[in-house]
Amino acid sequence: MINLFVGIDPGCSGAIVVISESGEYVSHLNTPTVKVGTKSRVNGAQVATFLLQYRGEISHAYLEQVGAMPGQGVSSMFTFGHAAGNVEGILQGMFLPYSLVTPQAWKKSAGLIGSDKDAARSRAIQLYPSLRALDAKAKGQAIADALLIARHGLGVKS
C-alpha cells in the first residue's frame, strides 16, 4: 500500500497537495470554486473527485486551522470559514483521518516565523525546484502553503 499525505490550504483561493511519505510531490489541485449568486463557494464535488483518485492510499490529511483575522470583513470571514468547513466535511465524509494544523505550527517547522507571506513560496521553490506551478504568484502561494502544511504533518524537515 502506498502511503500518501494531503496538505490543505483552505479557502476559495487555496490548494490541496498530495505528497508521499518521503515528502515527494505527487499532485495538487487549486481549490475549485463555483459561483453562487455573487459569491464564490468551494466546489465540493470536484474536491472529493480529486481525493477519490487516491482512495485507499491517503494515510492522513493536514488541514490548516483557520480563524478570524484582524481587519478582515465579516462577509469575507464567513466565506473563508464556509470554504474551510466544506473541505473539513469532505474529509470526514470520506472517512479520511485528518489533523488541524495552526499556521504558527507549520510555519515554525518550515523556518518561516517572522517572514513575509511570499517566504513560503520561496521555501517551497527551494524544496521543489521542478514544480513550475509554484512560479505563479497567487496560486503558487497556495500550493506552497499546502506543501509546507503536508510536510509539517509528516515531520519532514523543511
Rank of each mutant, 00 (worst) to 15 (best):
I2R: 12
L4N: 01
F5P: 00
V6H: 00
I8M: 06
D9Q: 08
P10T: 11
C12V: 07
G14R: 04
G14N: 08
A15C: 08
A15G: 07
I16V: 15
V17T: 15
S20D: 14
E21W: 06
S22K: 12
G23E: 10
G23I: 10
S27E: 15
S27P: 02
H28C: 15
H28P: 04
H28W: 05
N30M: 03
T31V: 11
P32H: 07
V34P: 01
V34Q: 14
K35Y: 12
T38F: 06
S40A: 11
Q46D: 13
Q46C: 03
A48F: 01
T49I: 02
L52S: 14
Y54L: 00
Y62L: 02
L63S: 05
E64D: 10
Q65A: 13
V66A: 03
G67I: 03
G67H: 13
A68Y: 05
P70M: 07
P70L: 08
G73R: 09
S76P: 02
S76N: 11
T79Y: 02
T79D: 12
F80M: 12
H82G: 01
N86D: 06
E88M: 10
G89M: 10
I90T: 06
I90M: 04
Q92H: 10
Q92M: 13
Q92T: 12
G93Y: 04
M94K: 01
F95W: 05
F95R: 12
L96G: 01
L96I: 04
Y98E: 06
L100I: 04
V101R: 04
V101F: 03
V101H: 03
T102I: 05
T102K: 13
Q104P: 00
W106Q: 06
K107N: 07
S109Q: 15
G111Q: 06
I113F: 02
I113A: 11
S115G: 11
D118W: 08
D118V: 10
A120I: 08
R121F: 05
R121W: 05
R123V: 13
I125V: 12
S130W: 07
S130V: 08
L131A: 12
A133T: 09
A133D: 15
L134M: 09
D135C: 04
A138W: 01
A138E: 13
A138Y: 06
K139Y: 03
G140K: 08
Q141H: 15
I143R: 10
I143S: 09
I143M: 11
A144H: 07
A144R: 06
A144Q: 08
L147Y: 05
L147W: 04
A150V: 03
R151G: 08
